[in-house]
Write a protein that binds this DNA or RNA. Structure first.
Length: 248
DNA sequence: AGGATTTGACCGGC
DNA sequence: GCCGGTCAAATCCT
């Protein structure tokens, strides 16, 4: 399913509007809320950046499918590499093995360890632009359950390269939630995670994601945005806003 | 040849 | 000494 550029831009703007509304709610309830507003602000700003990228770009943005296939940081590019046989419990990547969903960033694997508390190995990734753009974002990926396969992804650090990745091939956030778990598929994206770890469990088989975020869950994913076919924007259309979880 | 991944070694904290 | 995280040489693929 495809959307034209205008619809994508509108969707991004609507998302920014939704985030702004949430930010307002957060600020209104500041005395009872410990939620950080910085991620929301960043998300709003990124929504505008995404919208502008759609409008200004002379070439259409890569479609959703190509974006989803851009998983260089999560899936080995090669299937026959020696490590394939050595990954315990994973088998061959090419056998339609479900992998964690992409999060919009390009990661480079720099290590793998067997963790004492787990039978599965833990993989260590850092931003592919760690050196070029002095980005200190890292993440750890670990399978915590075999059947169905469940991955736990822990994000650390802050993406200082996000502005580049947004315009290159990623999209901004779709949904922000507080104190509730409602999103079916949520991955951290384009948000500032300053010194805070976000842990995500990704049940690969059904694309359902459990979250263990301890703070504001500014976890978002445009995948669902495109998949859910946002209706053409019209004045007063608040359908997108309805997807925003009300803060309580 | 260049870039990405693998994997054993190394390091620091406890 | 153990353990988790990172480094870097070796290896592999395009």
């Amino acid at each position: 399913m495809f959307f034209n550029i205008d619809h994508k831009a509108v969707a991004a703007l609507l998302h920014g509007q939704g985030c702004a509304n949430i930010l307002k709610t957060v600020l209104d309830n500041r005395e009872i809320s410990s939620v950080s507003t910085e991620p929301l602000i960043n998300t709003i700003l990124n929504s505008f950046s995404v919208a502008l990228s759609f409008v200004n770009s002379p070439n259409p943005q890569p479609d959703h499918q190509s974006f989803s296939q851009n998983m260089a940081g999560l899936v080995p590019r090669r299937s026959s590499k020696k490590k394939i046989c050595g990954i315990k419990g994973l088998g061959n990547y090419r056998d339609d093995f479900q992998t964690p969903r992409p999060d919009g960033f390009t990661w480079r694997k720099y290590g793998e360890k067997t963790i004492k508390t787990s039978t599965h190995q833990r993989s260590y990734y850092r931003c592919a632009y760690a050196k070029d753009r002095n980005c200190n974002a890292t993440k750890r990926l670990q399978m915590i359950q075999d059947s169905p396969p469940v991955y736990r992804t822990t994000y650390l650090g802050q993406h200082t390269c996000k502005a580049f990745t947004v315009q290159a091939d990623t999209y901004g956030p779709e949904m922000i939630q507080f104190d509730q778990v409602v999103s079916e598929s949520v991955t951290p994206q384009l948000a500032t995670i300053d010194q805070q770890a976000i842990v995500i469990e990704d049940k690969a088989t059904d694309h359902t994601t459990n979250q263990e975020c301890h703070i504001s869950d500014f976890l978002v994913d445009y995948d669902e945005l495109w998949l859910n076919e946002i209706p053409p924007f019209s004045s007063g259309d608040l359908s997108f806003d309805n997807n925003i979880v009300a803060f309580n």
